[in-house]
Simulated scan of single mutants.
Amino acid sequence: MANDEVGLRVRPGEVVGLLGHNGAGKTTLVSQVVGLLRPHGGSIRVVGVDAVADPGTARRCVALQAQAQAPLDGLTPKEAIVIAGRLRGMSRSASRDAAERMADELDIREWIDRRATPDGGGISGGVRRLTAFAMAAVAPVPLIILDEPTNDVDAARRRRLWNMVRRLGDEGAGVLLVTHNVAEAEHVMDELVVLDRGRAVASGSPSQLRGAEGDEMRLELSLPLDAQDPSSQEPPFRFVRRVRNGRRVLLSLAESDAATAVAWATALRASGRVEGYTLTPTTLEDAYLAATADAESIHEESAHV
């Protein structure tokens, strides 16, 4: 995936989300920041250092958790975290203390001294992923890049990881969080950039992308197989956005129209034209889907009463 004029900034103390579908260009951008890929144009600066002209110096200011699993075979999680800390200039005792503390914070104490084996045994994929996160976060650096950090991680430990991501930002690090898990990551992000086909198609704070007024509602219709979208026939209320994804139709509407929308959806369900519906406040996922809408499979438009 080639990126085209992507602009973003990660400030100290800020968690910036980089969102996008698989193949949107997220990992390509990360590889350019850390010097693994050279961009054909533009500039990348890390703590004032030109990362294209001087990738080695810039890389020393960045800790990366790559999308691929870290090569832990033959190591215990504790050994791997300690090695990462030592490579970042920590003393042996400080890196050991940090490894113990992070094992408790991520709830992997049970496996901290268990050795990973080449056949994938010893520790699970989720524990390997959490170990790789701890390796990136163990030592203070100006910029931490996390590329899909929660892959293979169970729900309880994902929550612990997200809390640690927020703490890293609160303690002064800049964090670039690459994810497609919009709903879970929303509460830790200060700003976000949405990529689609290598282009930045939306950016801003979560509240800005959801809608600054915060009074929009989200009506989701579940359609029967091969059913026509009833919202295409102009329902009895105005909606500001429509997104169709398969058998799901998402309508964004004003809070003042909620009662009318519920009555309309209830009648549709009674007649069998929809299987069900929900009405909730607009989410960041709705804004994300709208920003990355594919013209061939997802339809977005404004309706008029």
Rank of each mutant, 00 (worst) to 15 (best):
D4E: 14
V6N: 05
G13D: 05
V15P: 04
G17V: 01
L18E: 01
L19K: 01
K26L: 03
K26I: 05
T27P: 02
V30L: 02
Q32K: 07
V33Q: 07
V34E: 08
G35N: 05
P55Y: 04
C61V: 01
C61S: 14
V62D: 05
L64K: 03
L64G: 05
Q69D: 15
I81R: 10
I81E: 03
I83F: 11
G85F: 10
L87A: 13
R92G: 08
S93E: 14
S95T: 11
R96C: 08
M102P: 03
D104W: 09
D107L: 07
D107Y: 02
I108R: 02
E110F: 12
W111S: 13
G122R: 11
S124I: 10
R129P: 00
T131D: 12
A134F: 04
M135G: 05
A136V: 13
A139P: 01
I144Q: 12
E148S: 00
P149V: 07
T150L: 08
D152V: 03
A156S: 11
R158N: 06
N163S: 15
N163C: 08
M164R: 15
L168I: 10
E171I: 04
E186I: 02
D190Y: 07
V193S: 06
V193H: 06
V194N: 01
V194F: 06
L195Y: 08
D196L: 01
V201A: 08
V201C: 05
A202S: 12
G204W: 03
S207T: 13
Q208F: 04
L209E: 03
G211L: 09
A212S: 14
D215Q: 12
R218G: 02
S222Q: 11
P224T: 08
D226T: 02
Q228N: 10
D229A: 07
S231F: 02
E234D: 13
P236H: 04
R241H: 11
G246E: 09
R248I: 09
R248L: 13
V249I: 14
S252L: 12
L253N: 05
A258R: 14
A261I: 09
V262C: 09
A265G: 07
R269K: 15
A270K: 14
E275D: 13
G276R: 11
G276Y: 08
T278F: 00
T278L: 10
L279E: 06
L279N: 05
P281D: 14
L284V: 12
L284Q: 05
Y288K: 07
L289Y: 10
A290D: 13
A291R: 07
H299S: 12
V305Q: 06
